[in-house]
Design a protein around this nucleic acid. Structure first.
Lengths: 137, 137
DNA sequence: CTGTATCCTTAGGGATACTG
DNA sequence: CAGTATCCCTAAGGATACAG
């Protein structure tokens, strides 16, 4: 069963069907934070995605409506659709989480600190509930 | 190159190394929102993860420090560590995104609506920048 | 119940060459 | 430059049986 064939009405599963692999969100990151727009720019990222895989992911991300393609030939450029831009909160939370738990990361920058405060109250409540739930057992 | 072998200092890549596959976050979802704690409960989810894959994911999630295992034999129970609970914001953003873009989803509930408002101001600013950036080209 | 182990098939992916 | 195509190997995963 392919990842994209797995059916359930769960929103988590829906999201994972769209980008639940180890390459798609790296392309989104390049578009969202690194200003990359072209095939070679994506291929040149530190993670060294193979060109056949890159072709495939650009296609599936387009099919999911997360990115679009403009131009043709060597003028081809990719960009985020509104649906892709809507991934911004998720990307920020990934970065916040990684910055907090990756020992190799530098100290969190102003960007991460601000993002962390912005939704602090809402999450503190739910987090406390989850933690207490564990402690109670 | 395995997902978990791919090296770069990017926090996005760090996060994808920990849970950038199509099954790990479903286990986190089951622990976080569905109150599931045992092997069979995870295996019984709608997405029907195979038991060998489940064994592997429980192991890698433990190795990543996202979940812990308590008890032994048929008393074995899994739960989220603090590091796992810290994935809550990310999970919420996944759900918010999916609820907005999955046509099959029901109308967003109070949970999603509240989560959506909580970090609205911060993100509106960055989102506007990304959208304008595209429009300008 | 909680896993392991095995068998087998398919998807993912690296390397490289090639085309428009 | 922007991809495709091919080769080939490995990892992912499904089915099932089995063990503690």
């Amino acid at each position: 069963m392919k990842r994209t064939d797995r059916r359930s009405d769960c929103p988590t599963n829906f999201a994972l069907q769209a980008f639940g692999d180890s390459w798609s969100l790296l392309v989104v990151r390049d578009l969202m934070f690194k200003g990359k727009r072209s095939f070679v720019e994506f291929a040149a990222s530190d993670e060294h995605i193979a060109t056949n895989i890159l072709t495939d992911r650009l296609f599936t991300l387009r099919r999911s409506g997360i990115i679009r393609r403009d131009g043709t030939g060597r003028a081809t450029r990719y960009s985020l659709t509104a649906k892709g831009v809507d991934l911004l909160p998720l990307m920020i939370e990934m970065i916040v989480w990684a910055a907090r738990h990756d020992g190799r990361s530098a100290a969190p920058g102003a960007f991460v600190r601000r993002a962390t405060r912005a939704r602090a109250e809402l999450l503190a409540e739910m987090r406390a509930r989850l933690v207490l739930e564990h402690a109670a057992r």
